[in-house]
Simulated assay, not measured.
Amino acid sequence: MSPFGRAFADGDQLSVAGAVVTLKIHRRARRVSLRLDRARGEIVATAPSARRLGEAAAFARERAVWIAERIAELPQASPIQPGMTLQVFGETVRLEAGTGRARWLAASENYPARITAMGEGEGYARAVMLVLKRRALEVLTERTAHYAARLGAPMPRVAVADAKGRWGSCRAGRLGQPGSIRYSWRLALAPYAVADYVAAHECAHLLELNHGPRFWAHVKALVGEARPHREWLRAEGARLHAFGRP
């Protein structure tokens, strides 16, 4: 039994100041520490070993005020409802009530792009997010094809999901099979150039499954400097993850 109470395991969670605190082991850590995971909207309490996870839990409870302040800084989700205006890949899109299947209506001379969906409350929100996921898959598949061709790599399978930790992930192909890339659909809420950078980043992994110099050379050849896009995601990622969440 830990001197700080019950024994804890890597990944255990507790509630402090109304926030979720996840206990994690990081073998290279030299001390117990706390950080805010903005994408997940939770606090991570890190310890160098399993033996010190109880200490990490106790430290989190001692820092309840700090935790409450950090959670209060996170973006608050706005209800998804007709009349709302979004930026989708940098394009202004208006949400409207409609009938039938939820759909994307391209911009015309007289109207901005629109998403129409029926229902209300959570039902309306789910329908809108389904359209956004389809739009994300369409655009990111096109950009993936573009960058895979520039790199001379076979076109990978492309999918979108609601990953909280990564904007994209790549698996190399094996035995003559194409690789696969999975993106966060929430990239649809980012500027086009930022989402385009993520597509280039993941396609570069088709050739280099690492973040070494050759990998970054591929990325730079495709989209130029990565830093502005990476900084935008760090600064605004929590807002994208908050969209549509209860």
Rank of each mutant, 00 (worst) to 15 (best):
Ser2Lys: 04
Gly5Ala: 03
Asp12Gly: 08
Ser15Pro: 01
Ser15Cys: 11
Val16Tyr: 02
Gly18Trp: 00
Ala19Cys: 01
Thr22Asp: 06
Arg27Ile: 09
Arg28Leu: 09
Ala29Cys: 01
Asp37Glu: 09
Asp37Asn: 12
Arg38Phe: 00
Ala45His: 05
Pro48Gly: 05
Gly54Gln: 00
Ala56Glu: 02
Ala57Pro: 02
Ala60Ile: 07
Arg61Gln: 11
Arg63Trp: 11
Trp66Glu: 01
Trp66Thr: 01
Ala68Ser: 11
Ile71Thr: 11
Gln76Asn: 15
Ala77Arg: 09
Pro79Glu: 08
Thr85Arg: 15
Gln87Met: 13
Gln87Phe: 10
Glu91Tyr: 12
Thr92Tyr: 05
Glu96Cys: 15
Ala97Met: 11
Gly98Ala: 04
Gly98His: 03
Arg101Lys: 11
Ala107Gln: 05
Ser108Cys: 00
Ile115Asp: 00
Thr116Met: 13
Glu120Pro: 09
Gly121Ile: 01
Gly121Tyr: 01
Arg126Pro: 04
Arg126Met: 10
Leu130Gly: 15
Leu132His: 04
Lys133Ser: 00
Arg134Cys: 12
Leu137Met: 10
Glu138Met: 11
Thr141Lys: 09
Thr141Ser: 14
Arg143Val: 10
His146Asp: 14
Tyr147Gly: 05
Ala148Ile: 02
Ala149Glu: 13
Arg150Trp: 11
Leu151Pro: 03
Met155Asp: 09
Ala159Gly: 13
Ala159Asp: 12
Asp162Ser: 00
Ala163Lys: 14
Ala172Ser: 15
Pro178Cys: 08
Ser180Ile: 06
Ser184Asp: 08
Arg186Glu: 03
Leu187Ser: 06
Pro191Arg: 10
Ala193Thr: 07
Ala195Met: 02
Val198Met: 01
Glu202Trp: 04
Ala204Tyr: 10
His205Trp: 10
Glu208Ile: 07
Asn210Cys: 03
Gly212Val: 06
Pro213Trp: 04
Val219Asp: 08
Lys220Trp: 14
Gly224Gln: 09
Gly224Lys: 10
Glu225Gln: 13
His229Phe: 12
Arg230Tyr: 11
Glu231Ile: 10
Glu231Val: 14
Leu233Glu: 06
Ala235Asp: 14
Gly237Ser: 11
Ala238Cys: 08
